[in-house]
Design a binder for these strands. Structure first.
Length: 285
DNA sequence: AGACAGGGGAGTG
DNA sequence: CACTCCCCTGTC
C-alpha cells in the first residue's frame, strides 16, 4: 500500500478517456490490469492511495513526473481547446505496455469500448497467467508468443481482427517494439504499419499511449468530425490532412490536444448539432 | 425486434 | 481517393 500527494492529476479523467481498457470501478476504487500488474487505486482530492504496486510504478505509469501545466500551456492555442483543457485538466497520458497497447488498439478497429474490454478480458483469461489482489483472481496480459491459438482468439469475439492478433503474436517481440522509441516519429510509425491490422490510427495510438511520442495525433471518427468543424469550416478533409494540421498547429504535444478535444467533444457535446452550437458560441455550460 | 453504426484496415479499381 | 468487405456487440 502507498500514498502520494499529487498535483495536476485527475485519476478519473485519466482512466476514463479511452486510452486504456482493462479498468474496473468498484466502490470508489479503480481496479487496473496492466501487463502482469493487477492493482487498485483511488483518489481523494490531492492524494492517491494504491495497493498492489509500488510508488515508482505509479509515478511512471501515470506520467506523474511530466510537467503537465507546461504541456497544456503549449497546446492552448484557441478558445475551443481552452474549454477542453479547463474542463479536463488533470488528464494525463498513461505509459502503457507497448505490446498490450498494440493488441488493444488492433481490437479497437470498427469496435466500441465495451466490446474492446470484453475482448481483452477474454484473451487474458485464455492466454495470460493468474494474478491476484485482495484474494481476487485475475489474469495478466499474455506475453507475445502466448496468444497462439487462432480458434481461441476468435472465441474472444474478436471477429475479423482475430487473424491480425494471431499474426502479430507470431511476428512481434517486446524488444523490437521498445526499439521504436529510438526512431524518429515517422520511421517508428512506418515500422508499426508493417504489422497487419495496424494503419495510421492504430499506429498513432500505440506511439502516443505506449512509446512516448507526444506528437502523434490519432484521427478517429470523433476527432475527425470535431476538427473538420472547428478548423476546416466543416468541410470534408482527409485524415492525413487533419493529422498534419494537428501536429503543425498544436506542436510537439499535439497528442494531448487530441485527447483533450476528444474527451470534450465525446462527453460534453455528443451530437454534431451541439458541436455546431459550441463553435458558434451559443452553447451554455 | 430489427436495423445500424462502431475511436479502422486491407484490397481493389 | 473512393469504395467494399471484414465480424458481431451495443445501442437505439
Amino acid at each position: 500500500m502507498g500514498r502520494i500527494k499529487v498535483k495536476d492529476f485527475n485519476l478519473e479523467y485519466t482512466l476514463e478517456c479511452g486510452q486504456i481498457f482493462r479498468i474496473n470501478r468498484v466502490d470508489g476504487w479503480y481496479y487496473i490490469n496492466a501487463r502482469d500488474k493487477f492493482f487498485k487505486i483511488c483518489q481523494v482530492k490531492n492524494e492517491i492511495e494504491f495497493h498492489g504496486v509500488d510508488k515508482e510504478f505509479i509515478i511512471h505509469f501515470f506520467s506523474l513526473n511530466e510537467n503537465l501545466p507546461k504541456i497544456l500551456k503549449g497546446i492552448n492555442k484557441d478558445k475551443y481547446i481552452k474549454k477542453s483543457i479547463d474542463k479536463y485538466r488533470g488528464l494525463r497520458i498513461i505509459k502503457q505496455d507497448p505490446w498490450e497497447c498494440l493488441i488493444s488498439f488492433i481490437c479497437s478497429s470498427a469496435s466500441n469500448i465495451p466490446r474492446i474490454k470484453s475482448n481483452l478480458k477474454a484473451l487474458s483469461e485464455r492466454f495470460g497467467n493468474k494474478v491476484s489482489l485482495d484474494g481476487v483472481d485475475n489474469y495478466a496480459f499474455p506475453v507475445p508468443g502466448n496468444i497462439n491459438n487462432y480458434n481461441d482468439i476468435l472465441n474472444a469475439k474478436t471477429g475479423f481482427r482475430a487473424r491480425y492478433i494471431f499474426e502479430a503474436n507470431n511476428s512481434v517481440n517486446i524488444k523490437d517494439l521498445n526499439l521504436l522509441r529510438t526512431l524518429p516519429y515517422k520511421r517508428a510509425k512506418n515500422e508499426l504499419k508493417k504489422i497487419n491490422g495496424v494503419g495510421d490510427k492504430v499506429a498513432d495510438c500505440v506511439l502516443f499511449f505506449s512509446l512516448g511520442f507526444n506528437q502523434a495525433f490519432p484521427v478517429d471518427t470523433w476527432i475527425k468530425k470535431t476538427m473538420q468543424l472547428l478548423y476546416f469550416d466543416n468541410n470534408t478533409v482527409s485524415n492525413e490532412k487533419i493529422r498534419e494540421f494537428g501536429l503543425e498547429y498544436f506542436g510537439i504535444y499535439a497528442g494531448y490536444a487530441q485527447q483533450y478535444l476528444f474527451m470534450f467533444s465525446r462527453n460534453d457535446l455528443g451530437t454534431s448539432n451541439k458541436l455546431q452550437l459550441w463553435k458558434n458560441g451559443m452553447l451554455e455550460e
